[in-house]
Structures are given as structure tokens and as C-alpha cells.
Design a binder for these strands. Structure first.
Lengths: 200, 200
DNA sequence: TTTTTAATATACCGATTGGTATATTTGTGT
DNA sequence: ACACAAATATACCAATCGGTATATTAAAAA
């Protein structure tokens, strides 16, 4: 009874055209008719390519997260020093590239996490995985920077990574709900300070 | 055609028994039958005391926020120095008092803000108000501390207030979704450091 | 105790929800 | 051009959605 999507092309099309919808309105707030309206497809077509609504939402979440991660990973790989790699985060979140992204509903980790933490264990696990990966990648950069003698050896690696993420997510929340970009920028300034503080 | 609730007592009862429901499952995720089930009242009774579902949710949000604010304001008023007033936040969020609160769905500002920012302008405005008030109260404490020569005169007041809030909200998000309290505690440690850093 | 009023319960409404079985169309290989 | 398969559209389902008009009960006033 395993489900096999009929058309990988259509499946991808559905994911791409509904991803921002789920990110903006949430899982419970997005209906099947929202999906048919956005894709101009019928329910039959959507259910031919997805098991159910949750399956579409999950794929949309993964797509949104991958988009975000690609953007950041690319910039980080381009950075030469570990310092520059860390600085990619406060830089990119202040950039127009990311503000376009923020206009499509904000961070999928934050949006999905807040909705799912008390309501949907499957989604909560996915978000936890995304958060853990992000934190791990930051920790690896900090470790690398310590070994390369860019960062202080006594740096509290885990705490630093957590605080950077918290500041970014908190800043995104503040600026998105108040529609005031200054609040994100101020949070990002503090992220930069944290990075400065661990730098030799 | 203004709506007049029939029984202020019942109205309050409905608010109190459904407040955590809305905070956990969100506005879209909470149905009228969730409300009748939780209150053991019928729909007629609920619609006799509220205009509609949104009206219940709004009252529930205000209740949740007031509960949170009361707890914090009380502790802050008890604190003698401005330093201690600021320190109330990282202290209380790490305490068992607040963890009980977090178990009822987390911060209503965060939950409601994330759901509403792209979906419900009325709620978004309410959250913005709550955030603005919070920020303002922090700024007032910092100002007071500067005048009382507890904090450095060159302190960036707005940025400091924003970063403290962002760290707390980000930390709550991280620990709630990953179910790992360490992530909140690490964020709160950084809040303490920020307070230390502006202290003379 | 009776009358009046206030508040809750019952029963229903049309619309929409997520989901499915089947008919129709589209594309592909021969 | 034809047959076959792949994919989408149509039409429908029971259940639930938010909401309302009315009946019933509980409380207060007389």
C-alpha cells in the first residue's frame, strides 16, 4: 500500500507553487482548496501526487528549508576565513536576498516549529532536525576557527552557536510581526558583536 | 448592533479554560468543538458570551499575555536595583514558575505573532502592541539605570532591549521545538552577559 | 409563589473540510 | 492512426466547520 506519485514533475510543481502558502498561512490555515486555487490543478491531480494534505505540507516545508539552506551554505562556502563564514549569517539576513525570502513568510523552521511544537509531532521532529543541523554547522565553523587560531580557544562553542541562532530567529520574529526591519537589524548587530567577541 | 456578553462570569470561565488551548493549537487549529469540549458548555452558551470565534481567541490571547506580564512585572517591582530588574528576565525564564508557563504552549506573543504575521492583521497588531510595550519597559529600566549610574552612559538602549527580547524569544522557540531546555538556558546566559556588559 | 429576566441547551443551517472512485484527457510507443 | 498507459479532471462522500434561531432552564424580582 505504499504510495507512488504519478508525476514527479507535477509533484515538484505543486511543491514549488504551494511552499510559500504553507509558510505564510501555516498547515492548519492552508486548505486543499487553497492548493487547487494556487496550482490551478484539481484535487484529483494533487491526490495523485501526494498521499494527503500533510504529505504536501511536509514536502513544502522541506523545500522551503532547502531553499534557505542552499542560500546560506553557498555564501558560507565562498567565505575564506571562519570569521567570514560566521559573518555570513548577520550579513545575509540583512541583505535584500533574504528580505525577499522573508516576504515569503519568514523562516520555515520558526513558522513550522511554533505551529507544530504542541500540535504535530511529525513536523516538530523535522524542525528539530533542521535546528540541530544548523547548530551543528555553526559549531563546526567555530571549532574550525579555534583550530585555525581565528577564534579564542576558551570560546563556549555550543552556547555561542545557540545564541546566534536565537538572536536571528528572535529578530526575524520581531521584525516580521511588527513590520519593523530595525528590530532584526539590531539583533543582527548583536550577532556580529558576539562573533567579534570570540575573535582573537 | 454592539455585542453585550450575557454573563461576565461565564465569559471569564471560557477565557480561562480555553486560553492554553489557543496558545497550544493556534487560532486556525482550534475549533469551536474544541472549545465546547474543554468548557463542557454548548455552542449557544459560548456564542451568548462572545461575538464569534475570533472574539474568544482575542480574549484568550489578552488573558495569556496579561498572565505573563503580571508575573514579570511583579518580580521587577520587587527588584531594588535596575540591574536586578533587568536580571529578572533571564532568572524567571529559567525558573520553574516560567517552565510551568512554557508547558501551556509557550509565549503568547511568539505563538500568536508567528501565526498572525501573514494571516490575521488584527492579531498582528495586538502582538505588535505587546512587543512594543515590552521593549519600552526594558528601555525605561535601562534609562533609569543609566541615570542611577548603574549602567554605562554610552549604552545603546534600543539595541540592548531588542537583543534581550530576541534572545529570549529565540531561546523559547529553540527549547520548545527541540524539547531541549538547554537551548533556552544558553540563550539566557547570553542575556545575562549583555546585562553585565552594560553594567558599570 | 409567581412573574420576569438572564443564561444556557438544543437543533438546525449552508458552506467547507479532507478525501476518494471513476471518468476523461494527454502523452508515448508501435 | 491506433492502442495503451500515464496523469488529470469530474463528481461525489461523510464529517466538520463557524454560526444562529429558538426552546429550555436557572436565577432574581415581585
Amino acid at each position: 500500500m505504499t504510495f507512488i506519485p504519478r508525476s514527479e514533475k507535477t509533484r515538484q510543481f505543486i511543491i514549488e507553487t504551494t511552499a510559500s502558502l504553507f509558510n505564510k498561512k501555516g498547515y492548519a490555515g492552508t486548505s486543499m482548496s487553497d492548493l487547487t486555487e494556487a496550482t490551478k490543478l484539481t484535487k484529483g491531480s494533487i491526490y495523485g501526487n501526494f498521499e494527503n494534505k500533510e504529505d504536501v505540507a511536509l514536502a513544502a516545508f522541506e523545500y522551503n528549508l532547502a531553499q534557505r539552506n542552499q542560500l546560506i551554505t553557498k555564501k558560507m562556502n565562498e567565505a575564506k576565513s571562519y570569521y567570514d563564514k560566521l559573518m555570513v549569517l548577520p550579513m545575509i539576513y540583512a541583505s535584500s536576498e533574504m528580505s525577499i525570502f522573508l516576504e515569503e513568510g519568514g523562516c520555515p523552521l520558526l513558522n513550522t516549529g511554533i505551529e507544530a511544537d504542541d500540535a504535530n509531532e511529525l513536523f516538530r521532529i523535522q524542525v528539530t532536525e533542521g535546528v540541530t543541523n544548523w547548530k551543528q554547522s555553526l559549531e563546526n565553523i567555530i571549532k574550525g576557527g579555534i583550530e585555525a587560531q581565528e577564534f579564542k580557544a576558551e570560546t563556549e562553542i555550543s552556547k555561542t552557536a545557540t545564541s546566534i541562532i536565537a538572536l536571528i530567529q528572535g529578530g526575524v520574529f520581531l521584525s516580521k510581526t511588527t513590520k519593523n526591519p530595525l528590530l532584526l537589524n539590531q539583533s543582527l548587530e548583536t550577532v556580529k558583536e558576539i562573533i567579534q567577541k570570540i575573535t582573537l
